[in-house]
Nucleic acid binder design. Structure first.
Lengths: 188, 188
DNA sequence: GAACTGACGAAAGTCAATATTCGTCAGTGA
DNA sequence: TCACTGACGAATATTGACTTTCGTCAGTTC
């Protein structure tokens, strides 16, 4: 129904009249499906984030050692944001706006990812791969420590101004993950 | 000479005419001391950051265990930014602008602090308190992992929207520092 | 001639009038 | 009744005239 929407849309620049024309409707009719323009934006964003979140959850709840899964999750999250920035700038801008303006979708997305990371940490602790830290707290710290690599605004900042290479950034993230995972390990 | 400047000035809102009046000069005369308006802003910012940097260097090069000094440095840095945000919003805004617009002063300031943290890490490694990690790399990671608590824009964001308590924020920083310092320790 | 200034062009910022866009609602056709 | 629309008031964006500010320079004062 609203499938056609998610194709040729750019955030904040296209009017609902454009969307309606794209769908072969009148502008008024769009409001039978969405309560407001910002609801449309949120729906598009939610659609995008849903894909990311389910990918990360697949990693979190999949096989492998807990540290490896954490590493894979954060690498994947970083890679997704980087890809967005380079190949779908409009979407990147929309997600950036969603974060700085604290849209509704974002908090759910973050909670979902933190929960997934929390599960991995709890699992790792159960298996003796991690120290018995509070999973929720650990997950939040991981998120905050890697903010540079997963926050759209900070990524854009790094790429725009400092001219950081893509590979170098990924390398630094790996170093950070080494440090954090060392910190999570139990005393031996 | 330019001492009188640093009192009653607000960033980006006061004209050089105001500064000149404050100093009992004509606007034109100000340009004998500063090459441009932005040079005045940078000078004010540099003055502020100089104080912070020298405080942190005193901690870095002072007595105590390396982990404790690192912790003290980052706590102090966080506290300074928080204090700025609450009691000198104009200055906070100026530093924020300096960071987002990448003024000249900033890179020097960051380099200085990273160097100081690097010295502490190297010192700790020499004494066996830390694993033999590359000091520069370790310092950069510490900086990035604690960005939430030391980046003016992120602090403002956290305080404005999420209504985070001051104490809670400091507590989370402590947790983060625990994790990071655990990660830096040598295998035992 | 050293220290400073008034006056001025260029650039940036301000604000109100204008033009778009949002979202509603009575109304059309099936 | 249901799926939809044209027309319209309210809210938001854009334009452009006007004002302020920046930074220079010839010129004044001591």
């Amino acid at each position: 129904m609203a499938e056609g929407l998610f194709r040729a849309i750019g955030y904040q620049k296209t009017a609902v009249a454009d969307i309606a024309r794209e769908l072969g409707m009148s502008p008024a009719n769009v409001y039978l499906f969405f309560p407001s323009k910002s609801a449309i934006n949120e729906a598009i964003t939610a659609r995008l984030l849903e894909g990311v979140a389910s990918d990360l959850e697949a990693i979190a709840d999949g096989p492998g050692a807990a540290p490896d899964r954490l590493r894979a999750m954060l690498r994947a999250l970083h890679a997704r944001h980087l890809a967005l920035f380079f190949s779908q700038k409009r979407m990147h801008d929309m997600v950036s706006a969603a974060m700085s303006e604290h849209w509704g979708v974002i908090s759910g997305f973050i909670a979902r990812i933190e929960a997934a990371m929390g599960r991995v940490i709890a699992d790792g602790a159960r298996r003796g791969e991690f120290a018995p830290i509070d999973p929720a707290e650990g997950a939040r710290m991981l998120k905050q420590a890697t903010l540079c690599w997963t926050h759209p605004v900070l990524i854009a900042d790094a790429m725009d101004k400092r001219q950081v290479e893509e590979a170098q950034m990924a390398g630094e993230l790996d170093g950070m993950l080494d440090l954090l995972i060392r910190g999570l390990r139990p005393d031996s």
